[in-house]
């Protein structure tokens, strides 16, 4: 069935809310209002106030309460309205959700999912546009899911809700309206499996979230010049499908990593390090990272466009390898 990314997420939520009475959704304005980006529209009418819970503006509570309720047997899906706000409740992720199972010797679990949204390009400026997905990947105990297509979004969300670990699920503002055929009903995408979004033989681009689209557009351009690009979307950063990345690089001999966040210590650095450590002999050229500069995200559309990794920059980076 044709669905947008936003509809696919909503459909995934609906499947799980129907299937498992322990699943509930809580967050700011997720109820009758339908979420800041309309992702949860209609769910309140369908499932009522017990299952779709509007919270006050209280991020520590939203994430922290999910640690407690999931430890007591529920399966909360909570929403932190923007990725930028994850920093407000970093403790609840880094020291609480991530640590409970381990600190308590495996005798407690926190099967919770936190939805949040990334991304620049809508003039939201420095505090509502960041893609901070790398931050939480540094904390063992958390799973990071970051889909680039509607079908992946639905399948990964259902898998995330069924997963017994705390999962952070990154949506992207620029993808909400993207539409494609999405399987109906119960359907999962395995966590930790990359997907080749375009096959190619000369160079591998690893990209996730919105940057998959940009990389596919770049691949299209490069094909005109006779460069065959493989676009690999890891879909989840933790766990990372290392084998798929090494296999693709083994085939192409070249690696370009495209990330929307600023360059220093982005997740691309980790991928580059893995390939350098475990696949140096597969490479015929240096690894290149295409990333945003190390600046805050500016407001002015002109400056913001300069900030976001563009198709042109990706094309140029790939060409520099030949």
């Amino acid at each position: 069935m044709q669905m947008t990314y936003a509809e696919a997420i909503r459909d995934g939520l609906r499947v799980e809310l129907k299937r498992d009475p322990k699943v509930y959704l809580a967050g700011e304005d997720v109820g009758p209002f339908g979420g800041c980006f309309g992702v949860t529209a209609g769910l309140f009418d369908e499932f009522g106030p017990k299952r779709i819970v509007d919270t006050p503006i209280s991020e520590n509570f939203i994430v922290g309460h999910a640690v407690g309720s999931s430890a007591c047997g529920l399966r909360p899906v909570v929403e932190v309205m923007f990725d930028d706000f994850i920093t407000v409740c970093f403790d609840e992720f880094a020291n609480q959700a991530a640590k409970v199972r381990y600190m308590f010797g495996g005798k407690a679990k926190v099967p919770m999912v936190c939805l949040t949204i990334n991304g620049a390009g809508v003039g939201a400026a420095a505090q509502h546009s960041q893609s901070l997905e790398a931050l939480l990947t540094h904390i063992p105990g958390l799973i990071t899911v970051i889909p680039s297509t509607p079908a992946d979004a639905k399948g990964l969300l259902i898998a995330a809700i069924r997963d017994d670990n705390p999962v952070i699920f990154y949506e992207h503002k620029q993808l909400l309206g993207v539409s494609e055929d999405v399987p109906e009903g119960d359907y999962t995408v395995p966590i930790g499996k990359a997907d080749i979004k375009r096959e190619g033989s000369d160079v591998t681009i690893v990209a996730w979230s919105w940057m998959v689209q940009k990389s596919l557009a770049a691949a299209e351009e490069l094909a005109k010049d006779g460069i065959s690009v493989e676009v690999l979307d890891p879909r989840t950063l933790v766990p990372l499908d290392k084998e798929a990345i090494l296999k693709s690089v083994g085939k192409t001999g070249r690696l370009v990593i495209v990330q929307e966040s600023c360059k220093t210590m982005g997740f691309g650095s980790e991928i580059a390090a893995i390939v350098a450590e475990e696949g140096l002999d597969l490479l015929n050229a240096p690894i290149i990272r295409v990333a945003a500069p190390n600046t805050p995200i500016p407001f002015s559309p002109v400056l913001e466009q300069e900030y976001i990794p563009s198709v042109e920059k990706i094309v140029a980076a790939v060409k520099s390898l030949f």
């Binding site: 509570f61 309460h65 407690g68 529920l74 020291n95 609480q96 005798k107 407690a108």
Partner: peptide, 30 residues
């Protein structure tokens, strides 16, 4: 911690326990 006894855990981060306990209370009622 001892979940079998309903003990949600001592916490080394001061103040982090408020929301966790509130979540447990939420589950009691849910």
């Amino acid at each position: 911690a001892d979940m079998d006894m309903g003990l949600l855990g001592a916490n080394g981060i001061l103040g982090a326990g408020f929301a966790i306990a509130a979540g447990a209370a939420f589950a009691c009622r849910y």
